[in-house]
Design a protein around this nucleic acid. Structure first.
Length: 474
DNA sequence: ATGTGC
């Protein structure tokens, strides 16, 4: 246990926050609010905790809406750390009669996508430079064409990937024209919920809903922060049966994509955090946290449609990031299939037990479903299978979790030597060198204990482990 | 999260 933990807990108690710890689960509650459910955080000893994140979690659990909506449970994953918008990353919020736009935030349907390919590591590394140059062109210099018909754009926003595919078969443009649409269609069953949510195109920025051909500059771009595209090697398979079923074998290359809905999620998320504030009933006291729920059923439904619109866009963003990769592999290595293993959102509101479950940086870990947990750049990533653990609200961590903020890393006086940052031997392709510092392994918790604690708790089981070869960061 | 800003 960290030596200053007791001091931190006493300090939090003085400001009205009760935090207890039993060695693997923290319980957090606001003193004097007996009606609010306690919030739980699964976190092994020795991993850092911050008071700010506990504070955010307790306030989230205490949210109510004057219409009667309430928070049923709050749970946080081991990659739990403070969030900028007032809600901690790693928060899982089960509600009934209310939803919280701020509990998903602006990076709607941020998520993970994993492909594997039967290409040997030596063969890949022998063409590494050619691969990097082509991918830099696509991801950083705009040598990609992601145009589509306005019908395809509208179908995407309204119906998700199946809608986009159907219209792209009618009029294939851009990436779709070069893609194997039959394979994409077959693979859509490997996207969480089929990549098909019920959206409403008018919630998207206007550039996406216009007559003629839509050319969107944000599609098939990685985005900043912790987002990345990584080439990995499958270094260990622990569950042979399941790995085989999912098409994963030791020694294969893996391609892991972490990205979200870019400007579309920002547009929707910001609009609805404002809307929630404007819709707060006159006279009702504002929640201390400044995080405002929506309670009126019509508003809740409208928000969920808006969120789904951005989520549909994010599914296509990850699909196209992968498609550019797959086209490049075919160019360099011949007819490789590079099938999709799974695509899963970790920033989204979905129906759960008669209410809603908002995950902010938490991967669904439903029974028998694939769970993708990336380590920091330079560390291993994991393909897991969910156990549907109700105590954990069927959710796992979405990564290792930050241990130090971006500011702390880049301007907070961190030791900038490569060894101290953990960057020795890391092959990171970026146009912004400061990104390597902000996102260095030293900024993150160790993935090993984060994953192990969730296996021990019965939330996930390991299927395969992947080691990084090279990482693209915008 | 954002071609940002602490």
């Amino acid at each position: 246990m960290q030596p200053n933990l007791n001091r931190l807990l006493r300090a939090l108690a003085r400001e009205g926050l009760e935090v207890t710890y039993d060695g693997h689960l923290y319980t957090v509650r606001l003193l004097g609010d007996a009606n609010a459910p306690p919030a739980e955080v699964l976190l092994p000893p020795d991993l850092p905790v911050e008071g700010k994140a506990f504070r955010q979690l307790a306030h989230l659990a205490a949210l109510k809406h004057p219409t009667g909506g309430a928070v049923l449970r709050v749970r946080a994953t081991p990659d739990f750390h403070p969030g900028d918008s007032g809600v901690a990353i790693g928060s899982v919020l089960h509600t009934r009669g209310l939803v919280v736009p701020g509990a998903v935030g602006t990076d709607i349907n941020c998520g993970m996508r994993l492909h594997v390919a039967d290409i040997g590591v030596e063969a890949f590394l022998s063409r590494r430079d050619a691969f990097v140059e082509r991918m830099k062109g696509h991801y950083f210099f705009g040598t990609r064409d992601v145009s589509m018909s306005s019908r395809a754009a509208e179908a995407l926003l309204r119906d998700g990937i199946p809608g986009w595919l159907l219209e792209s078969m009618e009029q294939p443009l851009g990436c779709a024209a070069k893609a194997d649409l039959a394979q994409l269609d077959k693979e859509s069953t490997r996207i969480h919920l089929g990549g098909a949510l019920e959206g409403e195109p008018s919630w998207a920025p206007s550039g996406l809903v216009k007559p003629g051909v839509v050319r969107d500059a944000g599609l098939a771009t990685i985005g900043g922060g912790n987002h990345f595209v990584e080439v990995q090697r499958v270094e260990a398979v622990t569950d042979r049966t399941r790995a085989w079923e999912w098409g994963v074998r030791e020694g294969q290359l893996a391609f892991m994509i972490h990205s979200g809905s870019r400007d579309v999620g920002k547009h929707v998320g910001m609009a609805w955090q404002d809307r929630a504030r404007a819709a707060w009933p006159a006279g009702a006291p504002y929640p201390d946290s400044g995080i405002l729920p929506l309670g009126e059923p019509a508003l809740v439904a409208e928000y969920l449609r808006a969120e789904a619109t951005a989520a549909n866009y994010a599914f296509l963003n990850r699909l196209l990031l992968a498609e550019l990769l797959r086209l490049t592999l075919r160019e360099l290595f011949g007819d490789v299939e590079a099938p999709l293993v799974y695509d899963v959102p970790h920033n989204i509101t979905l129906p759960y037990e008669g209410g809603w479950l908002a995950r902010k940086g938490a991967c669904p870990a439903e029974a028998e479903q694939p769970v993708i947990i990336p380590g920091s750049m330079g560390a291993a990533s994991y393909l897991m299978v969910g156990c549907g653990d109700a105590a954990a609200l069927a959710s796992a961590s979405h990564g290792a979790g930050r241990a130090r903020s971006r500011f702390d890393m880049s301007r907070g006086g961190a030791d900038r030597r490569e060894e101290a940052l953990g960057l020795t031997g890391v092959d990171c392709i970026t146009l912004r060198q400061e990104r390597r510092v902000e996102e260095a392994p030293a900024a993150y918790k160790p993935i090993g204990p984060v994953v192990a604690s969730q296996v021990e708790a019965g939330i996930v089981r390991e299927v395969a482990r992947m080691a990084p070869l090279l990482t693209f960061k915008a």
